[in-house]
Design a protein around this nucleic acid. Structure first.
Lengths: 126, 126
DNA sequence: CTATTTGTTATATAATAGATATAACAAAAA
DNA sequence: TTTTTGTTATATCTATTATATAACAAATAG
């Protein structure tokens, strides 16, 4: 699984790493039990600081996606709980599309399309 | 239409204002042509600084939701273009739910539910 | 057991973002 | 003409983001 970093993006680097790992888990490319590179390894690969990667891993651990251990490295966790504010964030995002005039049906189709591309090449669930 | 500010939220105040106005437009509570309070008025109402409200209005104007005029105040615009990165943001959000184990069908139902609450009390389009 | 890798913690620094506080200017409406 | 309003300009403060080192302690590999 490849991760791309855009240093000039307005989105923080640690957030870019977090988002792409979450998407990797969603796509099934990183099933539970998968080991991730050490923070020093990732930092060296990207040419960024160790603490930036650490921040991404910490966030992923707080969200329940990862468990970070001493020498084994980070391991993808089986299942977590959806963040409490997830639906509020969904609401804000969908409202933006509605406010720009997209019909609800069109928005739903886009959600379906995005979900399809995410679940495309993988077994959906256990 | 009421706006609530949480000063202690991790979400920036100007973003809170922006999000709630966008939701107001989506719900049809702020149809095109609606005038919004002046930035000084809003700032006074919330007990916050003028520039914080100004930042929210500037953002809404860049996004095509508002047109800010000299003395008339801000006016809700008819229709804009959906932000280019909207679908990428949707993708990130849906991936998070998938990665936490929510089945795609369940996610779609939630999207439908949220859209329903947003289009509930209003005429959908035009 | 020993050496080494790793996550963790601790400082320090710099740049940017978020928010506030004033002040002044110019346009536009009353 | 007066007043309100958006705009612009500084200045200050805090928090966030990112980097740079350094050191420590746990855990694995040899």
């Amino acid at each position: 699984m490849l991760i791309f970093i855009e240093p000039e993006s307005e989105k923080p680097i640690y957030q870019q790493i977090r988002d792409q790992i979450v998407e990797g888990i969603a796509r099934g490319e990183l099933p539970p039990g998968t080991g991730l590179p050490s923070i020093r390894q990732l930092a060296a690969d990207f040419g960024i600081n160790l603490h930036t990667v650490n921040k991404a891993y910490e966030l992923l651990e707080r969200e329940g996606f990862l468990q970070v251990r001493r020498k084994t490295g980070a391991v993808v966790q089986p299942r977590g709980r959806l963040a409490e504010d997830w639906e509020a964030r969904l609401r804000t995002l969908l409202a933006e599309a509605l406010a720009q005039g997209l019909p609800a049906e069109e928005i739903l189709v886009r959600c379906q399309r995005v979900l399809a591309t995410l679940t495309d090449h993988e077994q959906p669930d256990r």
